[in-house]
Computed example of a mutant assay.
Amino acid sequence: MREDVDKEENVISVSNNMSYEIIKRLIDIIGASIGIIFLSIIFLIVSIAIKIEDPKGPIFFSQIRVGKNGKEFKMYKFRSMVTDAEEKLEQLLQFNETTGAMFKMKYDPRVTKIGRFVRKTSIDELPQLLNVLRGEMSLVGPRPPLPREVDLYTKYDKQRLLVTPGCTGLWQISGRSNIGFTQMVELDLFYIEHKSLLLDMKIILKTCFLFLGSKGAF
């Protein structure tokens, strides 16, 4: 947890532009639907690869995340770790390679072989398009945190939860795992204060260019 008294007093202003919210939701529904249709072959190939490597394990991994205004929801991913990954986390916390409330480990021993590939290319995130259709997530927004991460948040950090979380955002296109927790919060709050359809489109386009790359992902 950061001990930053000055930032505790710095509250961001959030505009409530109804037309922006309506158009953003329409873009989410259309974009997620098109994405699921056009990427269905990738869904199939990855699903088969996961089952071949670990026939007994599930294809998808669901995890409780914290969304807008602190509301919890179940977020979906392609499973990229061994089935007992959560139980093994406690043993690995001492090897955390990022700062603040997040956990990141470049050579995480819990990650499977196919898992390394889908995480490096961010393909493991594709099932979150289902969360977008359900309205729990948006195409663009802050990364939805884990409840245990939110427990360590300061009041300043909790401002990340003022908007619907997204599949991609300024954090993801600015370096992702190479960026620490404090910088991630600053990027998210900048987005919240300056959110617009133009900014959303810029983030989506840059995400598409980076999608098959490996920059900053582990």
Rank of each mutant, 00 (worst) to 15 (best):
S177V: 02
S174Q: 02
A85M: 14
L89R: 15
K106L: 08
T154M: 06
I12F: 10
D54P: 07
I48V: 15
P58T: 08
P145N: 06
K7E: 06
I37L: 14
L189F: 00
R148A: 00
E90D: 08
R176Y: 00
D28P: 02
E90A: 11
G175I: 00
E136C: 06
L212A: 10
G31Q: 05
I52M: 09
N10M: 12
K202A: 07
G57K: 03
L212S: 12
L26R: 15
Q128F: 05
L210R: 07
L197S: 01
V66H: 01
D157T: 08
G115P: 14
I173Y: 00
T168E: 04
L93M: 15
I27V: 03
Q172F: 01
E193P: 02
N131T: 04
N10W: 05
K158S: 04
A217Y: 01
S33W: 05
F60V: 07
Y156I: 01
E136N: 14
R79E: 11
Y191C: 09
K88S: 07
S138T: 02
L205K: 08
L26W: 11
K106H: 13
E87A: 14
I22N: 01
K71C: 03
M1E: 04
G213W: 12
Y76G: 05
E53N: 06
I22L: 11
L210Y: 03
Q159T: 07
R116D: 09
E136I: 11
